[in-house]
Amino acid sequence: MSRPFLGFGLGLRTEYYQHVIDHKPQVDWFEIISENYMVPGGKPLANLDKIRADYPMVMHGVSMSIGSVDPLNLDYLTKLKQLIARVEPHWISDHLCWTTVNHINSHDLLPLPYNEATIDHIVDRIKQVQDILGRQMLIENLSSYVTYNNSEMPEWQFVNEIAKRADCYILLDINNIFVSANNHHFDPHDYVNGIDSERVMQFHLAGHSYNGDMIIDTHDHDVCDPVWDLYGYALKRFGAVSTMIERDDNIPSFAELRQELTIAETIAAQTLSPKQLDISDNVVLKGVA
């Protein structure tokens, strides 16, 4: 299918609820962190419902632990499915990582060894998740700080193989490519060039912090110029891809973050034709047979 395009979005954070509800700022869509709304009721869900009434949404999770050797957490998936029914998102995503083992949650996005055995393990689990949820999902590439010595392939090949065999899509985090390229000494353009275009459904953009020679994915700064350059490069390769900025710390005013999103809009307008940037209507990824 041709790639649906939602336009340019932002991560919905509690600091922005009131501004968004009161002013209905021009943003094409919002991405929510799914777990923040896996609560019984109250303000989080009330605000979510109000904002959803006015904006398209996608759901982004941090706790599926798709790469874990623990059994899939069916209680979590049940709650996720309930939230999907409430939000009716255009799509849902989580990370190509593991977070939990022995039922202990690290609350971190921990990296996987890039080899055939891991691919087999994860493909099987994504298929199960897509069956349970009744829809295709997106998997996101990580920022990482270690390489396992039993990794056998570049990360982009690992991501491609999983997306192809599980028949899922890729949420390509441009900042994470930049961070991991620095930390593992590869060319970020090789990563972008290596990713299967037809599997890419969404981009993430974010800021990061330096810790000596390493870069840490902190989401606490503006998007830096080299990441904007890589974003432009990715747009040339993939065409229009729904794009959003994640900000999780050192949160700026909504107006400042919205202003930062105009940089993405400007780069896209300079790179692609207006027709390519037409926003798609009624996008929902297909159910799983």
């Binding site: 896996m38 609560v39 202990i104």
Partner: peptide, 8 residues
């Protein structure tokens, strides 16, 4: 150690 999927 955390046994929660939600840090909340």
């Amino acid at each position: 150690p955390s046994h929660q999927t939600n840090l909340r």
